[in-house]
Amino acid sequence: MTRYLRWTLPALIALGLSIPAQADKKAPEANTCGDYGTNVHFEKTPSDAARKALKEEKLVCVLHVSGDFEDPDFT
């Protein structure tokens, strides 16, 4: 039971508490990892995204794709 509490709940609680605060924050840092023609900024790896999410008190969105996501012709 405690292993669930260790990571998940603090992060989710932080998300809930920080939602009004997030709205006031300025735009995120300059995109270093790319948006690949979308309106979403993508971190290089899910691990990077998880670390950033923990720091910024957000959830993580991970896409699993076939082919080369970086190349629109191959996605």
């Binding site: 790896t45 899910p46 998880a50 957000k58 794709v65 076939s66 996501f69």
Partner: peptide, 15 residues
Amino acid sequence: LEKYFVSSFQRVGTF
């Protein structure tokens, strides 16, 4: 998505 999530992607399949 930018407001509530940090996003990333992984290649797990082929075509």
